[in-house]
Write a protein that binds this DNA or RNA. Structure first.
Length: 485
RNA sequence: GGCCGGUUGGUCAAGAGGUUAAGACGCCGCCCUCUCACGGCGGAAACAAGGGUUCGAUUCCCUUACCGGCUACCA
């Protein structure tokens, strides 16, 4: 039981779930499931300023849609709760542990004012930075007691020695060593009584039995500090897995501006959760067998965190689109129909047409659901088009011939009892042969006449079937008029 | 500024001393075909630069360049 793998996803409830966070959650989930371990959710709401109402619901919904089942979390007690940091804070957990560190001399109270801290900073290279000078480390016990009793605001800082080095190990990036002199005496408990992320994270991960810490690359350079906390407590350091950054096409941090930075943005744009999950898994990792389309179960089976990449990955919406198209093509027809119907209705605006036939026609030609609207809008109404469309070299079609064909085809279609695709195809093929024409010389003008477009989902006869006899003939009549002018 | 990372085609990525340097998306061409799409086949396209080490470096070491992160009482 002690070597049981336990991972956690520990987001801050600050809004929609960013693609980077989604991937972190996914890798965390995959590591746990692959090892038959436990996947835990912890809400890190220690920053009162950035907290967004309802953000926790978004996190839950996203995990649910993505198929990541949570074994332990705010809604599923696993015995090491609470799973929300503000609640843990209220129980005094962090303060208790911070004080333990104070008692052992690994941490100390600091009463420095903002102004004094500000005066410690220097500006160089255009940016401001500075390190705490351990001023309050020199306070006597009486001074500390007086300050505390008089209610002066304070923070608790970690006491990092100025000599020596600290090394920490990451599964992806290897050993990273820094001089302790580079390490600031970071704040453990803020003056509002809340712990900092750095501290709460370490305390919770230990108390909750986390064996593998998966998180973003941005924590890499501050990670040596974490080891100092673990060491100060005498706790075992977990396995660290830092994930590379995900950027936009300009290699900049994925932002709301890019329009697809969060899971919800993506689902709103017509992407399937399965495709999003599959694609994000591939941002920083690749399966050994090169099979890129994978279900969650397949991901679980194949995922090996030791093979995660070091370099940042560009989020390529184009490849996601392709992958989404692959998923759409594999969908169960009824499930697809259900998701496609709203878009079909929106494009048709009440025009009669067989929705089921239309849906299947669209299926091979779309990558996301909203693509449907552009694809079938012509069923509602023939767009204004140029008669140049009737000229097609490969089809050997000309305006003159088109006019003739359309005129002659009217009685043929009028006499057709069976207005379905196969029957119409046979009728028109026979018609072409009879007139000594190539198939395309009939199909091209007919398709153009009923659609007004250079390309359409489905061929001439499929369109005729969907439009029905009356509408088809009306459209052909219009085309004849147009070509006669 | 300091510190820490990173750098294989446009993008995602295999490869870890000797390979014709995989594969996928995208792009281009051909085939299939009642247009388009799907599908099939093929093509163009890469080891950031310079020094070492080595019989031999994309692969190991150093330097430079570029990109990113940290340097918060944000995570």
């Amino acid at each position: 039981m002690s070597d049981m793998v336990k991972t956690r996803f520990a987001p801050s409830p600050t809004g929609r779930m960013h693609v980077g966070n989604l991937r972190t959650a996914l890798y965390s989930y995959l590591i746990a499931r692959h090892a038959g371990g436990t996947f835990m959710l912890r809400i890190e709401d220690t920053d009162q300023e950035r907290f967004v109402e309802g953000a926790t619901d978004i996190i839950n919904r996203t995990l649910l849609l993505a198929g990541m089942t949570v074994d332990e979390g705010p809604d599923r007690d696993g015995g090491v709760g609470p799973y929300v940091q503000s609640e843990r804070c209220r129980q005094g957990i962090y303060m208790e542990y911070a004080k333990k560190l104070v008692e052992t001399g690994n941490a100390y109270y600091c009463f420095c004012t903002k102004e004094r801290l500000e005066s410690l900073k220097v500006t160089a290279g255009g940016s401001e930075f500075g390190m705490y000078d351990k001023h309050c480390l020199g306070l006597s016990e009486e001074e500390i007691r007086e300050n505390l009793e008089s209610g002066r605001p304070y923070v608790i800082r970690l006491n990092v020695p100025n000599e020596g080095t600290t090394t920490f190990h990451d599964e992806i990036y290897g050993d990273i060593t820094v001089d302790n002199a580079e390490l600031d005496d970071m704040i453990l408990i803020k003056s509002d009584g809340f712990p900092t992320y750095n501290f709460a994270n370490v305390v919770d991960d230990h108390l909750m039995g986390i064996t593998h810490v998966v998180r973003g690359n941005e924590y890499l350079s501050s990670s040596p500090k974490y080891n100092r906390i673990y060491d100060a407590f005498g706790w075992e350091v977990p396995v660290y897995v830092h994930c590379p950054l995900i950027t936009d096409e300009n290699h900049a941090k994925l932002s709301k501006r890019s329009g697809h930075s969060s899971f919800e943005d993506l689902t709103e744009q017509g992407f399937l959760p399965e495709a999003i999950v599959n694609y994000t898994a591939l941002l920083g990792w690749n399966p050994p067998d090169n099979e890129e389309i994978m279900s969650l179960d397949e991901l679980i089976a194949k995922f090996d965190y030791r093979k995660i990449n070091k370099s940042p990955a560009v989020f390529d919406i184009g490849k996601l689109r392709w992958m989404n198209g692959e998923y759409i093509r594999k969908m169960d027809p009824e499930a697809f129909f259900e998701k496609a119907l709203p878009y079909i209705e929106s494009a048709l605006q009440g025009s009669p047409a067989d929705r089921h036939v239309l849906a299947e026609l669209c299926r091979q030609r779309i990558e996301t659901f909203p693509d449907i609207e552009d694809l079938i809008g012509f069923f509602r109404e023939v767009p204004d088009y140029s008669t140049d469309l009737y000229v097609h070299k490969k089809m050997k079609s000309t305006k003159e011939l088109s006019l003739e064909v359309l005129r002659d085809v009217v009685p043929v279609l009028e006499g057709a009892d069976d207005f379905t695709n196969d029957a119409l195809y046979a009728v028109l093929s026979a018609f072409a042969e009879e007139k000594g024409l190539k198939k395309g010389q009939v199909m091209w003008p007919v398709r153009t006449a009923v659609s007004g477009l250079p390309n359409t989902p489905g061929g001439a006869t499929q369109l005729l079937e969907i439009l029905g006899k009356e509408e088809s003939l009306a459209r052909i009549a219009d085309a004849v008029k147009k070509l006669s002018e």
